[in-house]
Simulated assay, not measured.
Amino acid sequence: MLENGEAIAVKRLSKTYMYEKEFLREVECLIKVKHKNVVRFIGYCVDSQGRADSYNGKFVMADVLQRLLCFEYLPHGALDQYITDASTGLDWRKRYKIINGVCEGLHYLHQNRIIHLDLKPQNILLDDNMLPKIADFGLARCFNEKQSRAFTTKIWGTVGYLAPEFSNREVTYRFDLYSLGVIIIEILTGKRGYEDVENILESWSYRLDKSERDIQLEQVRVCAEIGIECIESNPAKRPVSVQHIITRLDETRSMDSSIEAAVTRSSRPQVMLAPGTWRPPTTLHLGAFLYPSF
């Protein structure tokens, strides 16, 4: 808890002597980012304290490092708690909002030349409004301006979300796209792995509101197609970038907004005037502005 009463989340690194590089890498990435779909970094603390202990039968004094990372506190926890099939759990609007938010957050990271490398539901946190925020940058890599790929001796991550090319030790921006695809399919179906688009549409068709069924089914279709494209084993067959994905999502989102606007207009009260009824000219309303009272 901060002095202003704001609750914060503290991440404490265990066995800190083993994770010096990971700690520095995570702080470097967190300092660079500031986006509504990325967890807000508040600060960090490194403290060294003396500790007496027994080692190989001898009494020794050693310095113990404590490394802490402080973030905004997100009360709804991680996305993995809300992964269900289409018949239960979050409605489509909330799921669609989460998919959009994760894509926008990942696009922001890639724009800032950051590859997350451990994107999964456990690392996507939700705020009071179920707005998703990407978290945990312990495995992230920062590229320079001219860099688009890197080769590394070790790639850590979570089995099931790791792109197949991890076996080649190759890291590119499309590495994250594979993880994104797995997450999208999970949000749609409640499970990982390839799913047929038509089966996904059928699973959702029974739950959607009749008034918005057509547009929402189109949104489900687009998300399913994107998810399947992202989990292609060949990186070259995945979407070109997260921006490309967002453009496709924006098209279905704008259709939804157009419908909402039309419904709003139709719900406004209509004033019907009898034939021959005098209507005051609209320019008279300007009087309040042109001639203010003193």
Rank of each mutant, 00 (worst) to 15 (best):
L273P: 01
V38H: 01
V39M: 09
T252A: 12
F23S: 05
V38E: 09
D91A: 05
R253G: 05
L177Q: 08
L90E: 02
K94C: 13
R174G: 03
E170M: 14
R279F: 09
G57M: 03
Q81F: 09
E6R: 00
N129C: 05
P292Y: 04
H285M: 07
S267Q: 08
V159E: 00
L177K: 06
P280F: 00
I200M: 07
E26V: 01
R207M: 09
C230M: 00
R192W: 04
S54A: 12
S254Y: 03
D80S: 12
D128F: 13
I98F: 03
G43A: 06
V240H: 13
C70S: 13
S87G: 04
R95A: 09
I114N: 05
N4P: 01
G138Q: 06
L290A: 01
S254P: 03
V242D: 09
V46H: 01
E229D: 13
F23M: 07
R67V: 05
G89W: 06
Y82R: 10
E6T: 00
V182Y: 02
S179T: 04
S205N: 05
C45P: 01
Y55P: 11
G5Q: 06
V64I: 14
K32F: 00
N129P: 06
A7P: 12
Y291P: 07
V220T: 04
A9I: 03
M18G: 07
Y55V: 15
D127N: 04
A236D: 14
G193V: 10
H76F: 05
L90R: 00
P281R: 12
S54H: 09
I99H: 08
S257A: 15
R67W: 02
S179P: 03
L65T: 14
F59K: 11
Y73Q: 00
G193C: 05
Q81W: 08
C103H: 10
G105H: 03
V222C: 09
I114D: 10
R221H: 04
T247P: 03
W204A: 06
L284A: 09
L131R: 00
L2H: 00
S254C: 11
K94L: 14
E165L: 07
R213L: 04
A62T: 15
V60S: 10
A140N: 05
G138D: 06
G105T: 01
W92R: 08
A288I: 07
Y194Q: 07
S266T: 11
F143C: 05
G287M: 07
I226S: 11
G89V: 08
A224D: 02
K120Q: 12
Q243A: 15
P132T: 04
L284K: 10
I134G: 01
R141A: 06
S205K: 04
Y161I: 06
K32G: 02
L139D: 13
L109Y: 03
Y108V: 00
I259K: 12
A62G: 12
Q147E: 14
E72R: 04
V182T: 13
G190M: 07
Q111M: 11
V159D: 02
L180H: 11
S14H: 15
R268M: 15
S267A: 14
G101P: 03
R25V: 11
C70F: 12
L68W: 09
E212T: 15
R174F: 10
E6F: 00
E195T: 02
L106P: 08
D256V: 02
S266Y: 06
P75W: 02
S241K: 04
